[in-house]
Design a protein around this nucleic acid. Structure first.
Lengths: 201, 201
DNA sequence: TCCATTTTTGACAACACCGTCAAGCTATGC
DNA sequence: GCATAGCTTGACGGTGTTGTCAAAAATGGA
């Protein structure tokens, strides 16, 4: 292999992701990415064809990590705790940085200039996967025993709610408020732990 | 008064609003607004100082109307129907147009280029007002009788949820799905109508 | 050592954007 | 009818953006 790539691809994609995350897809220029990565604009074009393709590369890494972290958060034996950890994870993620960076998926979804079909598909894919793992967790018996609506519906409500918290974060910049609202939703979704009067069914 | 304004201000602001709504704040240029309104760019600068001020003017009209429509939707004697109408109104609003225009408030909130303090304040104001009218409605007795969480918390959950549906609309473009998710949330928030065994308290 | 291949680099064309400004126009009030 | 204040118009400077390209540099293999 001659004429090897002279920049660290992983590190570059990390910084590209960070830049897109902070500034949003539409507002990020190739020059911004060049500056952030230390890789010349021309090299980025050469390596990734265009801005959209570069975004998709970076987004893929983000999506994989996000999904894995979500699965981790949900892996708690108590359904209520699992949900709380799930919301906590998303809120912590979106409120990192100064100023807070928000949620890359949501920012991109609402960015009029991120209207490429491939980008839309990538967003759908991530949300579909999140809904799937959430539904799987909520289908475990400890969850179904307390859920006041079917797991599939609850999963969709929770996913939609996380998207909502992202928007509220943008407006109010108050993580505690978000956690409070998430807690309220959890209270509504889960009935109180049934008092067991014996080793019944 | 000499040298009168030569364009219809109301019509102009309507078209400005429409353009911002369709394209988003950041992606709308003054030239776009000039083209959409038929008013020259220079005239717009002369009349409204700059893009942000022009946006605020147009947004004020939008916010007033939105709030009034929300109050209308909530003015139903049955709490469940009131909530359903509320969600229905927001979903209908955001799915109008082709392609669907989404929600102006949410698009603006997540637009990195709409970071002016006045814009942020305008967004907060609208959401605060919405939360207030929602809380008032949910504090009526027919609602409190069925709500599984306090009215203030429920109002915040519902507002956050509407923001979430906006994002989901961007990604999936499926109004029925949104209505379904809203319905699921309503089911969770409201306990079944209590069976009255008599004219008790 | 030298060649072939890929990357890097800096410059380029074309376009869009913002905000300003001087000159021209218009309508009101005298 | 005319002066004048305010609106309109078109052009300008400066900046930023995207994507391309030819020339230079780097590198592994023959």
């Amino acid at each position: 292999m001659v004429g090897q790539r002279q920049f660290d691809e992983k590190q570059t994609l990390d910084r590209v992701l960070e830049t897109f995350w902070n500034k949003g897809y539409g507002a990020t220029s190739m020059q911004d990415l060049a500056t952030a990565t230390g890789v010349q604009r021309g090299s980025l074009y050469n390596a990734y064809r265009d801005k959209e393709t570069l975004f998709l590369r970076a987004f893929q890494g983000y999506a994989d990590q996000f999904l894995a972290d979500a699965v981790d958060a949900l892996a708690h034996p108590d359904a209520e705790q699992a949900l709380r950890r799930f919301f906590d994870f998303t809120i912590t993620s979106m409120t990192a940085g100064t100023p807070t960076r928000g949620c890359l998926t949501t920012k991109t979804a609402t960015d009029e200039r991120a209207d490429g079909e491939r980008i839309q598909a990538a967003l759908r894919s991530l949300l579909d996967n999140l809904e799937r793992v959430l539904q799987e967790r909520l289908s475990l018996e400890d969850a179904t025993a307390r859920l006041v609506i079917p797991p599939a519906e609850a999963a969709r409500v929770v996913i939609t709610m996380t998207r909502g918290t992202v928007v509220m974060e943008r407006v109010y910049q108050d993580p505690d408020r978000l956690r409070g609202t998430a807690g309220s939703l959890i209270s509504a979704l889960l009935a109180p732990v049934p008092v067991r009067s014996g080793p019944g069914t």
